[in-house]
């Protein structure tokens, strides 16, 4: 019996349950289109766009929605123009 379990693969249903719980928790708190992460994303981008042209080559956005913690990473490549004074 034990041997059988040793050779059988781990159950996959617990993974399904855990993934669904995290996903649905995030989807349920979203009002209309946006959860907190989405709102932060948009506000950060708006702030950036006041100072520079947002170019998809230069701005990378990553999100990861977790059970306890979510992460939002906005990676911006800021070209340095020495002839230009700060706005």
């Amino acid at each position: 019996m034990k041997l059988l379990r040793f050779f059988s693969r781990p159950q996959s249903a617990p993974a399904a349950r855990e993934r669904l719980q995290v996903l649905l928790a995030h989807e349920r708190v979203a009002v209309g289109d946006s959860d907190l992460l989405t709102k932060l994303r948009d506000e950060i981008l708006r702030a950036i766009s006041k100072h520079m042209q947002i170019d998809d080559e230069r701005v990378t956005i990553r999100m990861e929605r977790g059970a306890q913690v979510s992460t939002l990473a906005v990676d911006i490549e800021i070209p340095f123009d020495k002839d230009k004074k700060a706005a």
Binding site: R19, V22, L23, R41, I61, R62, M63, E64, R65, G66
Partner: peptide, 12 residues
């Protein structure tokens, strides 16, 4: 997204 396991990483 769910079938490919990327459901937590959707940005746009």
């Amino acid at each position: 997204d769910l079938i490919m396991g990327a459901e937590r990483r959707v940005v746009y």
